[in-house]
């Protein structure tokens, strides 16, 4: 990773005011996660190598890289879902709001109420639309029907799907289109009022219009949530994120302001990947 210098003297690098502001923001912004010297092994396979990466609060961070580069693995360390894989070993630190979530005393249940996740394929429960969203809050002990209704409505509104489903809340979620199911899953995630939303290729199974709707939604959600999105879609990363990390062979090759990464990346491997020259 390399630092970005900003100068504007004659015959020196000239950035526009906007890009300069972005670069300053990324260097000084508040961080929700701080990953320090993270290593991860699947058995003998060294899948993540010395990862040092900040995740900015109330921003969208995109993680890009070719298949098998470790980006999904990294995402799953952020809510410790990776522990479900047998033979996993981890070293280093992931500070979430200053506390190391890899610490054995850190309660994973607590972490998962703060960190929601949306997967590649929409995975609604075989229940009604209402029950899908109310499921999380119910598990957390909310029984008051009026309050549950409020949560469901707000979550569905937050996921920009309320108008499409408000008259069919008690129909089975499987009757929704793929794009609607994915937004329902986002609503389900919002219902537990997380701080962070992890998204693992959330639009790769969706048609172009649904994809744009989810992208629009992500943009609107970032004022209330910190979002980390793994995507294979380069244009998507460029469109919706404010910072981007490029992973290759389990390493972070480059991390920085998205405008910078997609216009003048510092590392040739980043340039080759985003230009579609390998991957």
């Amino acid at each position: 990773m390399s630092a970005v210098t900003v100068t504007d003297n004659r015959n020196k690098t000239v950035y526009s005011d906007e890009l300069r502001r972005n670069i300053v923001e990324i260097e000084s912004g508040k961080r929700v996660y701080e990953t320090k010297s993270l290593n991860l092994w699947y058995g003998k396979d060294h899948a993540l190598k010395n990862i040092n990466l900040p995740i900015q609060e109330n921003e969208v961070t995109a993680i890009i890289g070719p298949s098998g580069c470790g980006k999904s693995t990294y995402l799953k360390t952020l809510n410790r879902m990776v522990e479900l894989v047998s033979g996993v070993r981890v070293s280093g630190e992931i500070l979430y709001k200053g506390r190391n979530i890899l610490d054995k005393n850190y309660k994973v249940e607590e972490l998962r109420t703060r960190v929601g996740m949306v997967f590649q394929k929409p995975n609604p429960f075989p229940k009604s639309i209402f029950e899908n969203v109310a499921y999380g809050p119910k598990i957390h002990g909310i029984r008051n029907k009026k309050l549950l209704h409020e949560i469901v409505e707000n979550s569905l509104r937050g996921a920009a799907i309320w108008d499409e489903v408000k008259d069919r809340l008690h129909e089975n979620a499987y009757g929704l289109s793929g794009g609607q199911q994915q937004r329902l899953c986002i609503a389900r995630c919002l219902a537990i009022e997380p701080d962070v939303i992890l998204m693992d290729e959330p639009t790769s199974a969706l048609d172009p219009v649904s994809t744009l709707k989810v992208e629009e939604l992500v943009q609107n959600l970032k004022k209330d949530y910190s979002i980390v999105i793994v995507t294979h879609n380069m244009q998507q990363a460029a469109r919706i994120s404010s910072s981007t990390a490029f992973f290759l062979h389990g390493e972070v090759i480059e991390y920085g302001n998205t405008d910078h990464i997609f216009s003048t990346p510092d590392d040739k491997r980043t340039e080759d990947y985003i230009s579609g020259r390998f991957g």
């Binding site: 380069m234 244009q235 460029a238 997609f262 216009s263 003048t264 990346p265 340039e271 985003i274 230009s275």
Partner: peptide, 9 residues
């Protein structure tokens, strides 16, 4: 082709 970075430049 939606070029980026040096291609776009």
């Amino acid at each position: 082709q939606q070029p980026v970075a040096s291609d776009l430049r």
